[in-house]
Nucleic acid binder design. Structure first.
Lengths: 254, 254
DNA sequence: CGGTTAGTTTGGTACTACCAATTTGACAAA
DNA sequence: TTTGTCAAATTGGTAGTACCAAACTAACCG
């Protein structure tokens, strides 16, 4: 009778969960197209026959999952949006942080991913992309020539190189994994750019890898990658041998 | 003893976000140890000087992130818990689902992960673990002998084998990635168990892989893995009989 | 001693009221 | 007509109250 009744009222416990699941399902089944918005909280409250707080909590859950973006004011509401890698990356970051996963494990994982990505990139990326990668690595080298070398800039450039390479694999999952790792736990990577000796070696290694990718030489490219992570591992070992930091301290909770 | 709270009241907009971040930070810095619980909603309401709804939404966000587990009743509340792979896996599943990632990409990613895991497992797992893996794959074969072959049971067993193998890599990240993939998008794997012809081949392949891992023969183990995914790819191709599977994905993720 | 029951704690829900941000549109001024 | 301004409507954000439901506690009764 009404076109607005794709949702059904709830009567049992955990209404909030149920509502969130219903809306989520509606979004994933594309009953509400991306870019459109959900009914307002007060409308949903009427449709679900529940309090507004429940609706708010449900929408909040969707927001946290990255399914919707919430805007205020007239014409505001919960707009369905594309999920970004950042959302999953954040979850991954939390996971790694709470599990106290050491940098060695991260490096090992990253190396394995990098190796596969490199092989795929050589096989699938076109000449333009490969040459662009070489150009970008050259820029990284040139940055080191300049007098003032900003560590943040170097790290950002390094991240962008990783993402660019991942895109060249033509498999979106690798691209996502790379973005998630970058977002989640790339801090130990910056360590490579802390010490001037490693800094240059790392940049040169990036350039060498890019050139070997452009030359369609997978074996040598893998050698470069291995060298990169050997460098990183050495760096990690040196850092973790340093004295204890102040990580554990005041536990003043009642 | 309401003297020194580790939380500070907020006055600007987005109080809910702010509170959630404060509590999350407190949890991650282990100011509240795992297993303990946050103050009750009403206490937090007093500490933060805000409405209870705000507190509820903040705690709800933490629950969605998997940081806390909420229990009702006296002695209830938000208990800090360990993040499980399921939380991240759910995010990944949403991501894959909304991005419409095809099974071919998933299979490719899984194969690359499987290869690395296998190498690591051969190098790091002890003899007991390897033999247990062989035993489990034998069970899978025996299942096929029986008359009633429940597809769900086979699939579950297959999942457990994957997780077991991932654990043997001794790198928790691979273990997590495997769990996430299993949770997120393992449905096309079941396709292998749909058709009787593939069913037996897959089980035999699992057994062969396990034996070669137990024999510490990485090259042959990798061959088995490759065979497994060749089988899977063939199955996928048969199912999606109209594949114009070239990269139409150039505009889906930007 | 053991089972039952009442009370307390705490999350779950409903409802109301008001604030803040944003869009829309009416209306006045140039 | 065009443009600037302001009021109204829409909608999320917050505060507060009240009550229900679940779960633990402890007193009470057999």
């Amino acid at each position: 009778m009404t076109t607005t009744s794709i949702f059904t009222p709830v009567q049992i416990g955990r209404a909030g969960e149920d509502i969130a699941l219903q809306i989520e399902a509606a979004i994933l089944e594309e009953k509400i197209p991306t870019g459109e918005r959900l009914p307002s909280e007060r409308e949903l409250q009427a449709q679900f026959q529940c309090g507004r707080g429940v609706i708010r909590e449900a929408i909040r859950a969707l927001k946290q999952k990255g399914l919707v973006e919430i805007r205020k004011g007239a014409k505001g509401g919960a707009y369905i949006k594309h999920i970004e890698a950042a959302n999953v990356g954040e979850s991954l970051a939390l996971f790694l942080k709470q599990k106290q996963i050491g940098p060695g494990y991260i490096a090992e994982f990253r190396e394995s991913i990098d190796r596969v990505i490199t092989i795929l990139a050589i096989a699938r990326a076109d000449k333009v992309e490969k040459e662009a990668l070489v150009t970008e690595t050259s820029k990284l080298l040139q940055m080191l020539e300049g007098p003032e070398v900003d560590k943040e800039t170097l790290a950002r450039h390094d991240r962008e190189l990783n993402i660019r390479l991942a895109k060249m694999s033509k498999n979106p999952i690798f691209e996502w994994v790379m973005e998630a790792i970058q977002l989640g736990y790339s801090s130990q990577d910056y360590a490579l750019y802390d010490q001037p000796g490693y800094r240059r070696k790392t940049a040169e290694n990036w350039h060498a890898t890019a050139c070997r990718i452009a030359d369609n030489d997978p074996m040598k490219a893998l050698n470069s990658i291995a060298a990169h992570y050997a460098l990183l591992q050495r760096c990690i070992d040196e850092i973790t041998e340093k004295p204890e930091n102040d990580a554990e301290s005041n536990e003043t909770y009642a």
